[in-house]
């Protein structure tokens, strides 16, 4: 949402408001048969007196926002490395083509929904009246847990004081969490407490900043971003071989989306 707000502002497009709905569902991946991925059905609602040209420009921005590019267009260039608690560190990319995904059970992906509202009154202006920060979005998340339905709210966006995290780092936090979840479930730990000594660390490049990202979104240009993902693993290369860790990473749902895309099952942009 904040990318579209920024594109509209920079392009002088009279966008008055925006809302987004995602329905999330499990999807079995043919290319990774041992994995259950996730798919989304997306509806974006734009409010404003928009011309056809403006609608097309904003629709393109919807498709090419930085997080959408990472999840659907292969924009993430990932370099993996592993550091064992014994001290050794080694590159874990590229993965040998012959390596098979590690067997084992991953958490179920349950159906649910994500509803996003743009918080209009959080938009910030500079002394000349120009927009300095796009403001915040409030996101309502609902999932069907195996016990009962669960709900959370998440705030993200662009604020000068850093009240909320920007969307792209939030998405990478999700990737780190997904990686940690996947490895903690699949790796053959020697002791029960070893999983808690696991750590996933991410470092990102930020090519061009926010203005460049919005320009790319408006133009429909894929902006590649480099990421270093370090797995800090218990044990040593002998007790936790690099191939085992690489094979487990092949099962991670968000990593699969970064490599293969395919999470968009349906998308609509509606003008109100």
């Amino acid at each position: 949402m904040v990318t579209v707000v920024g594109v509209a502002y920079r392009g002088g497009i009279p966008l008055e408001n925006i809302e987004v709905d995602f329905a999330v569902e499990p999807v079995e991946r043919a290319d990774y048969p041992a994995s259950l991925g996730f798919g989304v059905r997306e509806v974006v609602r734009l409010k404003g007196n928009l011309s056809e040209t403006e609608r097309v420009r904003l629709q393109r921005a919807v498709r090419y926002c930085p997080v959408g590019q990472a999840l659907t267009k292969g924009s993430m260039v990932v370099e993996d490395e592993v550091q064992w608690l014994s001290g050794e560190v080694t590159a874990a990319s590229p993965v040998p083509e012959s390596l098979r995904p590690l067997e084992g059970n991953l958490p179920a992906i349950v159906p649910g929904s994500v509803h996003g509202r743009y918080l209009l009154d959080t938009k910030e202006y500079d002394a000349d009246g120009g927009m300095s920060d796009e403001g915040e979005a409030k996101i309502y998340v609902t999932t069907e847990n195996l016990t009962h339905t669960s709900r959370w709210t998440v705030l993200a966006g662009h604020s000068s004081e850093g009240w909320v995290p920007p969307p792209f780092p939030t998405a990478q936090a999700a990737w780190a969490a997904s990686t940690a979840t996947t490895l903690s479930r699949l790796l053959p730990f020697e002791d029960a407490g070893d999983a808690e000594s696991l750590r996933v660390e991410l470092g990102m490049s930020a090519p061009g900043g926010r203005g460049q990202a919005q320009g790319n979104a408006a133009a429909g240009t894929v902006s590649y971003r480099n990421a270093v993902r370090r797995i800090v693993a218990p044990g040593s290369p002998r007790t936790m071989p690099i191939e085992t860790i690489q094979a487990a990473l092949l099962r991670d749902p968000i990593s699969i989306a970064y490599r293969e895309g395919g999470v968009v099952l349906d998308e609509q942009v509606v003008i109100d």
Partner: peptide
């Protein structure tokens, strides 16, 4: 900070599953 969780049979989820946090970021 973010807390993420996974669906389970015995307790409520501590936070949204990671995939949901990713989609929330996408929505934002």
């Amino acid at each position: 900070p973010f807390v993420t969780g996974i669906p389970n049979l015995t307790s409520d989820i501590g936070g949204p599953p990671p995939q949901y946090l990713a989609v929330a970021a996408w929505a934002a």
